[in-house]
């Protein structure tokens, strides 16, 4: 988004992408890849699995898969269950 600061100058712009992350609206840096998102959230890569728009992003493809505006991302892990 573009905001004018109080001095009338344009603030430095940080392009972001709007995504839906685990059901909540979220913003991430432009051109972020899935592996960076996991790192950004301070998650252990081996303890999560990732789906973008209903499709698995296999761990071998996390470093290459860029997030796009409007992506729906699911980050899952294992919890206790029967």
């Amino acid at each position: 988004m573009f905001w004018d600061d109080v001095s009338g100058h344009r603030a430095p712009l940080q392009h972001t992408l709007k995504i839906v992350l685990n059901g909540s609206p979220s913003e991430v840096a432009d051109a972020m890849v899935v592996a960076e998102l996991i790192e950004d959230l301070d998650l252990s890569p081996e303890q999560v699995a990732v789906e973008v728009n209903g499709e698995l992003v296999p761990r071998t493809e996390r470093a290459a898969r860029q997030l796009l505006e409007g992506d729906t991302v699911e980050l899952v892990t294992l919890v206790g269950g029967g």
Partner: peptide, 13 residues
Amino acid sequence: TVAVRRVNLDESK
């Protein structure tokens, strides 16, 4: 057995 659930992004890890 274990279950698969969303990572809780709000909770302190």
